[in-house]
């Protein structure tokens, strides 16, 4: 089993490694039994067109060389992309960009794309909930108002 130069590069000096304080979404994927676990943080911002983009992205990973390299690569691939574009990043993209992982290590690269998709899903869900909460708030306020009136 031999890693490509690209994998070694990312393993040696991982990009965007660390924690984001007050992230817009965090996902944890993997499990302790298989030994590779990844935590991915994203911060969402807007581009000039007003579209939502991944403004910042960071990772923390416990795992093998491939797990760390794929974590690093996904942050490179996703950073600055619109959320829709980012959601389209696949395991295959990560694999290609890393000049292919050894066959026995392919499951690690699943982890990175899975982490990103999970973080985005969580973000979308949170957004969906927000307007609902606002409605609840409004009605609660109006109830309070009516109470006051009475």
């Amino acid at each position: 089993m031999k890693y490509s130069k690209k994998v070694i590069e990312h393993f040696r000096k991982p990009h965007n490694q660390g924690e984001i304080k007050n992230p817009d979404s965090v996902a944890v994927v993997g499990n302790p039994v298989c030994g590779d676990i990844m935590r991915l943080y994203i911060k969402v911002g807007k581009n000039k067109k007003g579209e939502e983009i991944i403004k910042d992205i960071k990772f923390e990973t416990l795992g093998c060389g491939a797990a760390i390299a794929t974590s690093s690569m996904i942050t490179d691939l996703a950073k600055g992309k619109t959320l829709e574009e980012a959601y389209k990043i696949t395991t295959k993209n990560v694999n290609e960009e890393l000049e292919w992982l050894p066959p026995v290590k392919q499951h690690c690269s699943n982890l990175a794309a899975e982490g990103l998709h999970e973080a985005l899903k969580k973000y979308f869900e949170k957004k969906k909930e927000k307007p609902k909460k606002k409605k609840v708030c409004k009605s609660a306020k109006s109830k309070k108002m009516t109470k006051k009136k009475s």
Partner: peptide, 10 residues
């Protein structure tokens, strides 16, 4: 440092 105590989640 890279692993950031992810194991705590489990």
């Amino acid at each position: 440092k890279i692993s950031g105590n992810v194991l705590d989640e489990f």
